[in-house]
Design a protein around this nucleic acid. Structure first.
Length: 285
DNA sequence: AAAACTGACAACCGCTGGTCC
DNA sequence: AGGACCAGCGGTTGTCAGTTT
């Protein structure tokens, strides 16, 4: 769809010239993308207002910056967020809350906008299904006791190509009963071989600051790694990133539950939901 | 086949903090 | 000191493709 032109500037950063007179809004065209990309490639990022002006774009500097960072930047990754990335997002969000840009720093190629959208569309949806708030203790427990352990189990299974069970086969399809597949992790996170200390620390606290371990604990303990040091806070011991080359990918024979969307659906089957609600009720009582 | 609904994602908005003059 | 400008952040909305009815 073509973007439209507005007659007057928005309140944001009202400029001192009349460039605001015909600012385009809405979806970017291929031509605009090309103009912006060419300009930034030659002149570099920054000074977005002048980028917009000098590149001949009838956009705000803000809009140019956003388009570049979220879409045109060469290293931006597109496509489904894989399990490792999902796990990292859950972990980092449990620590920092809605600090999307900070979280995005640990997922190279992913933008804060993408992570924010993931959280809103996938994670909040599950909270809604459980009839609890995404920030509630109940939902955090659900993540801790079921969601994250299952994700880690899947990642582990995928990293062991043939250890008795196909790496990319859901327990449903593998014929494991619902009660077994969930119950195998127990109700005590400490029972679980992949229990995450970082998250357990805040178990009884609503404070996201409470008893958190270093980021490196998470990935070092569970070896999500592919070996990468691209971490702003801790370049030497930072968490292992989700580089394209180290993604957990479905095998040729997989049923595809490693693509972003399916993985969550599998985790939140009716049986799992029932189990979760039972657990949550028990926890409350 | 078409309308209604839903989910995913792109884009915008308001606000905040930093820098410069 | 304080105003103007700017970059960046997080929340929200708009759009569109896919799905369901």
């Amino acid at each position: 769809m073509e973007g439209h032109v507005i007659a007057s500037g928005s309140a944001e950063q009202v400029g001192h010239d009349d460039a605001m007179a015909d600012i385009r809004r809405g979806p970017w065209t291929a031509e605009e993308d090309s103009m912006l990309k060419t300009y930034v490639t030659i002149h570099g990022e920054g000074r977005w207002n002048s980028v917009a002006r000098c590149a001949g774009l009838k956009r705000t500097g803000k809009s140019c910056r956003l388009r570049w960072l979220n879409y045109l930047r060469p290293d931006v990754r597109r496509g489904n967020i894989n399990l490792k990335e999902q796990l990292l997002i859950l972990e980092l969000h449990s620590r920092w809350g809605n600090r999307w840009s900070k979280i995005a720093q640990y997922l190279p190629g992913r933008t804060d906008n993408e992570i924010k959208n993931y959280w809103r569309t996938r994670v909040q949806k599950q909270a809604k299904q459980l009839k609890c708030d995404v920030n509630s203790k109940q939902f955090r427990d659900a993540m801790r006791y079921v969601w994250i352990p299952r994700m880690m189990e899947r990642i582990r299974a995928a990293s062991e190509p043939y250890s008795g069970q196909p790496a990319a086969t859901d327990n449903h399809t593998a014929g494991v009963s619902p009660s077994t597949q969930v119950g195998a992790f127990g109700t005590d996170p400490a029972d679980h071989p992949y229990f995450m200390p970082a998250i357990s620390g805040g178990a009884s606290s609503d404070s996201s600051e409470a008893q958190v371990s270093s980021i490196s604990d998470v990935t070092e303990c569970y070896d999500l790694s592919g070996g990468n040091n691209n971490y702003p806070d801790n370049p030497q011991n930072g968490p292992v990133s989700c580089q394209p080359g180290t993604d957990v990918q479905p095998s040729e024979h997989s049923s595809g539950w490693f693509d972003g969307g399916d993985s969550l659906d599998g985790l939140w089957s009716d049986e799992n939901m029932w189990f979760l609600q039972q657990q949550l009720c028990d926890a409350v009582l």
